[in-house]
Design a protein around this nucleic acid. Structure first.
Lengths: 144, 144
DNA sequence: TAATTATGGTTGACAAAGTCAACTAATTTA
DNA sequence: TAAATTAGTTGACTTTGTCAACCATAATTA
């Protein structure tokens, strides 16, 4: 792989770092921080999940996560039930309130994306998505 | 733009957030922090640049940048010269030491990318890059 | 099976990253 | 030329993230 290729990949990384930063910035107006939103996402989609699994999925420090979860508990957003098989493990789930909050956030985030993509026509959107999927396909070979 | 499209875009964003996180993590082993490296990048490529411009390019708080630059100055990595036209402006450039440090970092970063991409064959690399460029093309219409 | 080691999670103490507002000095604008 | 703006610095602060010690439970092994 030559230097030129590397440069192009790094250029894309810088470019996309900004894109993500732009999108994330908007979340800052919500009641939740970025890592909080990510944690909520994982809980919401797993329905029931251990703290350990979340740290693995998000590559997040367990002490940090513990505090995030504590704050969720105080706000009544999650419920913990202990695992029958392993008493060390606590299974976390969103409460009804938590799920509602998450869905609200999620919808706002969807709208933000849709708003931004307004500037593209259908063909461009289709192409964009297929390029994204192609990248995921190629790169998913690597992380294995 | 329908919900399905939005989902796919957001999935890619999550995916690529992890990719970038993985690549960035490696920089943490260097003498510099992530924002420091980004600032060095801008100074290196502009050769001479004002703090203002850096804040715009990186969307960075000016007070934060000011401290980063201070730390660079203490380490002898940059030199400031005042602008002849506007005495409020200080033009920042990397010192010889600073440029050398940056190049070292940059090379290490290049190697990291090259290492990772080892797992792909030439065709995959070419496709990856062309997908990346296509995305940049499409999305650059938006940020305008 | 008793002692040791490993694991999930919490806590305290801290470091890094980022923000906000007030300020100085220079520059523009009215 | 007085008022408003701008580039950059500083102080005080919050948020984000890390590290190590610790507790309780579980798994391993002697």
């Amino acid at each position: 792989m030559d230097k030129h290729d590397v440069d192009k990949i790094r250029a894309f990384n810088r470019f996309y770092t900004k894109v993500i930063g732009l999108l994330d910035k908007f979340l800052l107006d919500s009641k939740f921080t970025l890592p909080e939103v990510r944690v909520m996402y994982e809980i919401y989609h797993a329905k029931k999940i251990s703290a350990k699994t979340i740290t693995e999925l998000l590559d997040m420090d367990k002490s940090y996560l513990s505090r995030v979860l504590l704050s969720f508990e105080k706000k009544g957003l999650i419920a913990k039930t202990s695992d029958h098989v392993d008493a060390r493990v606590q299974l976390i789930a969103l409460s009804a309130t938590g799920a509602k909050e998450y869905e609200k956030l999620n919808k706002a985030s969807d709208n933000q994306i849709a708003d931004i993509m307004e500037n593209l026509n259908d063909q461009e959107v289709n192409k964009l998505i297929s390029h994204m999927q192609a990248i995921q396909n190629i790169l998913s070979k690597i992380s294995k």
